[in-house]
Nucleic acid binder design. Structure first.
Lengths: 199, 199
DNA sequence: GAATCTTCTTCGCATTTGGCAAGAAATCAA
DNA sequence: TTGATTTCTTGCCAAATGCGAAGAAGATTC
């Protein structure tokens, strides 16, 4: 797959969708990001290191995972474009991360280093507000997912994912999706079979 | 139970623990909060309303819950003092909340209305940084809990809660704790029996 | 193209969890 | 105190999930 060079337009559009503002303001923010590409399986962040960059994912798929005490790998997030990919805790608290960020496919990213992020937060109120909205939206998403883990059955979570992010089923192995849903690949396979019969 | 009138000192101490700063700065922030008490079962926030206040819980216990499609009530958070109690999504995005916040015991709160919060964010950099840290910590906590839901067994989650927040078992019905752990009260009862035998 | 590796499904069985109901124990209210 | 309500535990059985292993299908590498 070939990833063409592109302008910052995807970044601008996403910033505006998260935090409505004039296009010129959004462009100034977007211009602070630099383009980067990843090959399949490349790591963006590794356990134990302090996260020094914020990322915007323009194309491709990335997962966040860690190892449990038995050495099994547990995926707790799958990022699909367009979205921001951040380890908020490590990035802003400057502590070593507990997670690995790995490209599941070839990816196109836009990155901004921590220092520049901070400098812009202080210098530009719009940038600061945008950063705040990033935190708020991350919070909203995490809470919604946690409520779903408590309240919904595995099949309901599968159906919801199929509805909200159908594209990941084309690009991400089911084993990883199963882990993200909090079940084994065996169980997901069963759920898919029964789900297909109902429809 | 009698809740004595108190100074802002608990608020000051908690702000400093979250975001290190000189005591005089923390005091200025804390002074913006007003004291409020709740009787048992009183609601702080109800589904459908926009959350207009941020709360600091000085004493007592509060739960966040919602109803699932079958009308069952699902508790997804239990707040124990000292801590901030916020519906970040509703408060900062100004959208109707999906959750109910209810006092499980008599409570002492410190509250600050949304407008004053915003005004202070703009006027005081320290207040703004404190608010940012609130968002970041909430994020960290939510993610840790979500990872635990994926990775850990119900018994492991129970053991972790017993270790990190033993006090809630003295003040919160097991039925609610079970819901928070993502299991039924029946299952929690079994886990407790088996857990006690091991120890 | 052939060999290798990964992914996905399926099977059988054990374990965990849920749902319902009953009853004991504790708490609350009059 | 007394009666009513809530909380907690337990038993029984059904459903959901995990585990290990095996094999088919697909993808990757050389």
């Amino acid at each position: 797959m070939h990833i063409p060079e592109q302008s910052h337009s995807a970044v601008v559009a996403f910033i505006q969708s998260m935090m409505p503002m004039p296009v010129d303001k959004a462009s100034i923010i977007a211009a602070q990001f630099e383009r980067k590409t990843l090959v399949k399986h490349e790591f963006v962040l590794q356990e134990g290191k302090v996260c020094n960059e914020s990322y915007f994912l323009e194309s491709g798929y990335i997962r966040a995972f860690a190892f449990d005490p038995d050495g099994n790998d547990v995926t707790f997030n799958i990022f699909s474009p367009p979205s921001f990919v951040n380890d908020i805790s490590s990035l802003f608290r400057r502590v070593p991360t507990k997670e690995n960020l790995q490209a599941l496919t070839e990816c196109a990213l836009w990155t901004i280093p921590y220092e520049r992020l901070q400098a812009n937060f202080h210098a530009m109120p719009e940038f600061r507000e945008f950063g705040r909205m990033m935190l708020i939206m991350s919070n909203t998403n995490l809470k919604d997912r946690m409520i779903s883990m408590i309240r919904d059955t595995a099949e309901e979570r599968y159906a919801a994912l199929l509805h909200t992010k159908p594209d990941i089923f084309q690009h991400v192995p089911l084993k990883i999706i199963a882990s993200y849903l909090g079940i084994t690949d065996t169980s997901l396979s069963r759920i898919r079979r029964e789900f297909a019969q109902k429809s």
